[in-house]
Computed example of a mutant assay.
Amino acid sequence: MLARVPCCVECGTTQNPCRCKVVGPTIGFLAFVVAAVIEWPLGALVYPFRHIKGRRIMSHPVSVVYTRVNHCFPI
């Protein structure tokens, strides 16, 4: 059985002449998964005591990690 590597494609971008990105979104997704494995349980522990802080911790992989990594790669 073959292991499948996630491949994300973003079309319509203006960061390169091809108007298509593959590397940035794929590495961004992998970085998102690593950050989410760490931050979601931590956010769930904080949430009962500090609701807004817990929500901010759980949204960090999407709002910060994925977008920063995605924009680092023009292709």
Rank of each mutant, 00 (worst) to 15 (best):
T67C: 07
A31Y: 03
T67Y: 11
A31L: 09
Y66G: 07
V9K: 00
V46T: 04
P74H: 02
E10A: 01
T26P: 02
I27R: 06
A35W: 02
F73I: 06
V69T: 14
H60M: 12
V37I: 12
V9E: 07
S63Q: 07
M58Y: 00
W40K: 13
R50C: 11
E39I: 14
G28N: 05
P61V: 12
I38H: 12
P61I: 12
Y47Q: 11
L30R: 04
E39F: 12
C11R: 03
C20N: 02
V46C: 05
V64Q: 09
I52C: 08
P25K: 06
Y66Q: 08
T14G: 06
I57V: 12
R68L: 13
M58D: 04
T14Y: 01
S59P: 04
R56T: 15
S63L: 11
L2G: 14
H51P: 15
S63N: 11
N16G: 09
N16D: 10
I27V: 10
I27P: 05
A3P: 13
V62P: 10
C20V: 05
G54T: 05
S59G: 09
F49I: 12
A44L: 09
T13C: 03
C20W: 00
G12E: 02
N16Q: 06
V23L: 07
K53C: 11
K21Q: 06
P25Q: 00
F73D: 03
R50E: 14
V33T: 14
V34L: 15
S59H: 12
T26L: 06
F73Q: 01
P17E: 09
P74L: 07
V33M: 10
V64M: 14
A44Q: 08
C7D: 07
N16E: 06
P74S: 06
V46R: 01
G28H: 00
P48Q: 05
S59F: 07
L30P: 07
H51V: 14
C11D: 09
C72H: 08
T13I: 07
V37Y: 04
C20Q: 01
G24P: 02
R50N: 10
V37N: 05
R4H: 09
R50G: 06
F32K: 02
F49Q: 01
I75A: 00
V22Q: 00
V22D: 00
H60R: 09
V22H: 00
A35S: 08
P48W: 00
T26A: 03
C72V: 13
I38G: 13
P25E: 02
W40Y: 15
V69P: 14
G24L: 06
I38A: 15
V62Q: 10
S63C: 15
R56Y: 13
I38N: 13
G43M: 04
E10N: 09
K53E: 15
V34S: 10
S59D: 11
Y47L: 13
A36Q: 06
I38C: 14
P25H: 01
F29G: 12
R68Y: 13
W40T: 15
R19H: 10
G24E: 00
P61Q: 05
G43W: 07
V65K: 01
F73E: 03
G12N: 02
H51D: 14
I75S: 02
V34C: 11
A31T: 13
A44P: 15
P61C: 13
K53Q: 14
S59I: 11
W40I: 15
A3R: 08
Y66H: 06
V33L: 09
Y66E: 11
L2H: 07
